[in-house]
């Protein structure tokens, strides 16, 4: 085999809670714009986040199901950047001390049969609002209903070796998360989103430069986008050039992957959310809860 493809996936999954991650607004999808908002999820001056217990419980349940080590103490951090649908100018997420690390998922590869994908980490964070460009000409319109909805981010190890394996991983992950009732993993409604990282190398060589592909709205498109990007990178290297580390976007109409101007996420991550104590995880209680779900 001339080339080896290396893929890692970051999957964002909305949790099945009634209310948002840090406030009591409804987390429901599809309501009229800016009707499920409050001082907290609008980032009004003086508002404060209070974490949702069920979100923590579901995140821990997912972590157990994926064989992760769940940390009884983890910390919220802030990822600061400016974007119209990010009301506080920062996203509350987890950084150096995430909720869970070191798990695995069994996947059946169309090319090599059953194999194990490592899960690097699983952490809790909040979703941003939704931006609509040019719905009003020359303007960006923002709906904050989605702002603050609970998410878990699941980061895989770069153990996938083909676009088809990436799709198989996503299918397996969705199956698990749905079965344990953590999320409905509906890509169309945005309750599951994928950022795919791909690089290529000659076997035995160190990892190549990777690009990040975003804006893929179905599992089959993930496979298409990665297939395109794989081919593009190989062509670049064979032409004697270097692959640039870029963020890419997928165009579903043409099947092409194009560079996009990457968001200026200058992460000024204040580790340990200032003014927020650490996240308590009632380990025993959540473990029993998870067992109840898994074995019922």
């Amino acid at each position: 085999m001339a080339w080896e493809t290396v893929v890692g996936l970051e999957v964002h999954v909305q949790l099945l809670t009634r209310s948002k991650m840090f406030c009591g607004c409804s987390a429901a999808y599809g309501d009229p714009p800016n009707t499920n908002v409050c001082p907290v999820c609008l980032g009004l001056p003086g508002a404060l986040p209070v974490p949702n217990e069920r979100a923590v419980r579901l995140a821990v349940r997912a972590a157990f199901a994926l064989g992760c080590a769940v940390h009884s103490r983890s910390i919220f951090a802030r990822k600061n950047y400016f974007y119209p649908d990010l009301p506080k100018g920062y996203q509350i997420s987890q950084f150096e001390e995430p909720l869970a690390t070191g798990g695995r998922l069994e996947v059946v590869s169309p090319e090599r049969g059953p194999f194990t994908v490592g899960i690097k980490r699983l952490h809790l964070e909040e979703d941003s609002g939704k931006s609509f460009h040019d719905r009003v000409p020359g303007m960006t319109a923002v709906d904050f209903n989605r702002s603050g909805v609970p998410l878990i981010e699941i980061v895989s190890e770069p153990d996938l070796r083909s676009p088809a394996e990436a799709r198989a991983y996503l299918t397996a992950l969705k199956q698990v998360l749905r079965w344990i009732e953590v999320s409905d993993c509906n890509m169309e409604e945005g309750s599951l989103r994928v950022d795919a990282n791909l690089s290529v190398r000659r076997p035995g060589e160190p990892l190549g430069t990777r690009t990040e592909v975003k804006n893929v709205n179905s599992f089959s498109n993930v496979e298409r986008a990665l297939a395109f990007e794989q081919g593009r990178q190989i062509a670049v290297i064979e032409a004697g050039e270097q692959v640039e580390q870029r963020t890419m976007t997928f165009d579903a109409a043409t099947g092409e992957v194009r560079p996009t101007r990457s968001k200026e996420i200058f992460s000024l991550a204040l580790s340990g959310l200032a003014g927020f104590f650490s996240l308590p995880v009632d380990f025993i209680q959540y473990f029993l809860d998870a067992c109840q779900v898994f074995f019922s």
Binding site: S19, G24, V37, V50, N52, L279
Partner: peptide, 12 residues
Amino acid sequence: AGRLRRDEVAPD
């Protein structure tokens, strides 16, 4: 450790 909130729709 901080306090958590019950998951119910009760917006401010």
